[in-house]
Amino acid sequence: MNRLAKYISHDSDLSIILRYVVLLILIVVASIMAPGFISMQNMLNLLRSFSFLGFISIGMTFVILSGGIDLSVAAILAFSGVLLGLFQHWGIYLGHVDTLSLLAPTPILFLIILSIGSIFGLINGLLITKLRIADFAATLGSMIFIRGFAFAISGGRSIFNLDGMALFLGRGMVGPVPFVAILFFISVIICSIILRYTIFGKRLYATGENPIVARLSGINPQKYKIIAYTISGFFASLAGICMAGRLNVGEPRVAEGWELDAIAAVVIGGTSFAGGKGGVINTVLGVIIIGLIRNILSLLGILPDPQEMIMGIVLLFAIVIGSLGTRKGSLARV
């Protein structure tokens, strides 16, 4: 562990401490406002509700580390949920709406949906690297397309009632712990191992910090960027499946605007827009902070719309703080 610390460099970072202070303050505020807040039960519930944003933020971390940005994650999330609903109500096209009629066994459906999500990510990556479209513009286009696609295949309807396995994904408990939270933490662990202990991870960081250096060091930066977007697509789609299970519905309107929450979670976690700095563990911190802020706003009885308004300011503030000290114009790269 000592060697690892040496490798990662001990560039002490005050702002990380600041983040923990913010977290602490939020917890104190929340526990004063809601006496039951500190209870184990509530903590576990919160963990579950954070997990969905958590998944797409993991994917977003990969993309931002590679020096990009992915606006299509929330659309992929919604699309995947709708797809799950459709695949489990295949008879919808025959007029039977409420009865389950699986296209294939549920695990296979999961695999298909996760592959489709990953392919969306792959396409984003290809558009950006091969056709040289700016990251945000390409993913903005695919966001619009995929969200439209989700509405089109569902005809704008919510597809209720999923099968047991899907529900377990979103609602199931393993002992006292929500299954989706376990899945989230397993993902976090795997991803931080990938980022820290694999060649892929190291090369991704190098690509994000300085693609020129990476290239001269024998790395193909385009490849790593494409993979990062693919991973983002995968996690967005995983979030979509779990979310559908949680809500027991394939819903094309779900998670609108979450791409910004995910970006903010990543940035609050300390991953730099300039790319190449940060990591998944940091992002978990960001997700928890964002989640807690939303939770506290709800506890205050603030309705969804004013909540959005406040979140807009919080996110802007977080991004401004997060971008301080990054090199000029790092996001303006086209």
Binding site: D305, P306, E308, M309, G312, L315, L316, I319, S323, T326
Partner: peptide, 23 residues
């Protein structure tokens, strides 16, 4: 001032202003 690309600033502004208008 902060050298943040305007797409991200205006994305936050989009959420803020819509929330403000609706609430």
């Amino acid at each position: 001032r902060f050298h943040i690309h305007s797409f991200i600033v205006s994305l936050c502004m989009m959420i803020f202003v819509r929330g403000l208008a609706v609430s």
